Every structure is written in C-alpha cells, then in structure tokens.
Simulated scan of single mutants.
Amino acid sequence: METETTADRLLVIVEDDPKFSQTLARSFERRGYEALRAASLEELQDLLKTRSPAFAVVDLKLANGSSGLACVQALHAHDPETNIVVLTGFASIATAVEAIKLGARHYLAKPSNTDDIEAAFARAEGDVAAPLTERATSIKTLEWERIHETLIETGFNISETARRLGMHRRTLARKLEKQQIK
C-alpha cells in the first residue's frame, strides 16, 4: 500500500525507448520521485491496477506505431488529477490539441530534460501572457501537420495514410524520413 508521501511523488514514464526511459527515471528518482516505467498501453494498464501515479510523462509515439494519446486517455480516466506531460520528437498543433483534450496538462517537444518536465508539472494553469506570434504558418508546416493528423487517424499505418492523402506510399515515406516522429 502506498503512503501519502510516496503517492504524492509517484511518477510513471510511458516510453518505449528503454535507455531514455531508464535515464529519465534515474533523474527523477534523484529528485525524490518514485519512478515506474511502462513501454506500452498494456503495461500502463497493468500498472494502474495497483498504483495511482500523481505524475506521468508519456511519449507520443510508442512501439509498433501505437499512439501515446491512448495512454493519456487511460491515465486521465484512472485519475483526472494526474499531472500528465506528453513528449514528442515532432510537435504538431493537431496532436497538442488532442493531448490536452484527452487530459494532458502540457505538451513538450523533444529534446526535453528533467528540468523542462518538472517545470511543466509545476505550471498547473495556462499563461494568458503567452506571446502571440505574428508569423503565418508555412505551407510545409501545414502539410506536415495534416500528414501527422492523418497518421494518428490511421493508427500510424503508412499505406492507409498515403491513400487518404492521395500520395504515393514512397513519397510519404520520404517525407517521414525527413521529419522523424518520436
């Protein structure tokens, strides 16, 4: 059974890269957290049967093309008070919006370190003073956001994404190689 102080600092890291997950866990443990790790939605669900983390760090893209958004949804359903931060190698407006809708409190682009993540945990509220940019979104950014949105809709199925976007599978594969999704 968890003590209240243990539960207050219980963190789950949902990340399929074992080296990154281990490094992140060690870093948080040095800061007084109890860090648990899961590499998939299934592992997370098993963990949630016995533990209730106060904090979570979730990678957006997990092994076998699965989405970390399902993990965000599971964590939020388990305990809406869980402070969830989503990490991704490619940030897009579409996935940021979906992550927040599903219960994440923050969305950080990789590379992010423990300081960045802990700072995100500390910011419980939005910032109305956040600067608005005057720069218009580029065509390349819009294209990439549409590709990423369609990838999510298809469960990261490259062939189906290419079909829905009306492009050749190899063309899509080349575009994906240029912009790695993690």
Score class of each variant (00 low, 15 high):
Glu125Pro: 01
Glu149Ile: 01
Val57Tyr: 03
Arg123Lys: 14
Ala74Cys: 11
Arg123His: 12
Leu41Thr: 02
Glu149Cys: 04
Leu24Ile: 10
Lys178Glu: 14
Leu172Trp: 10
Thr23Phe: 06
Gly68Tyr: 01
Val12Ile: 15
Ile152Glu: 15
Thr5Lys: 12
Ser21Met: 08
Phe55Thr: 03
Leu60Trp: 02
Arg146Tyr: 08
Thr50Leu: 10
Leu151Thr: 04
Asp16Pro: 06
Asp8Thr: 06
Ser67Pro: 09
Ile84Lys: 00
Leu24Val: 10
Gly155His: 04
Val85Met: 01
Thr82Lys: 03
Arg164Tyr: 04
Gln45Arg: 12
Gly103Cys: 00
Glu81Gly: 11
Arg9Lys: 15
Gly68Lys: 03
Gln180Ala: 10
Thr5Glu: 14
Arg26Ser: 10
Phe55Lys: 07
Ile139Ser: 08
Val14Leu: 04
Ile13Lys: 03
Arg164Phe: 05
Val12Met: 09
Lys101Gly: 06
Ala122Thr: 02
Arg105Gly: 13
Glu2Trp: 09
Lys175Pro: 00
Ala77Val: 11
Val85Ser: 00
Gly89Lys: 00
Arg174Ile: 01
Ala122Lys: 11
Ser112Asn: 06
Tyr33Met: 06
Ile139Met: 10
Asp79Cys: 07
Glu145Gly: 01
Ala96Tyr: 02
Leu60Arg: 05
Arg31Phe: 07
Pro111Ser: 10
Pro131Asn: 05
Thr171Leu: 13
Leu60Ala: 04
Arg26Tyr: 09
Arg105Thr: 07
Val97Thr: 06
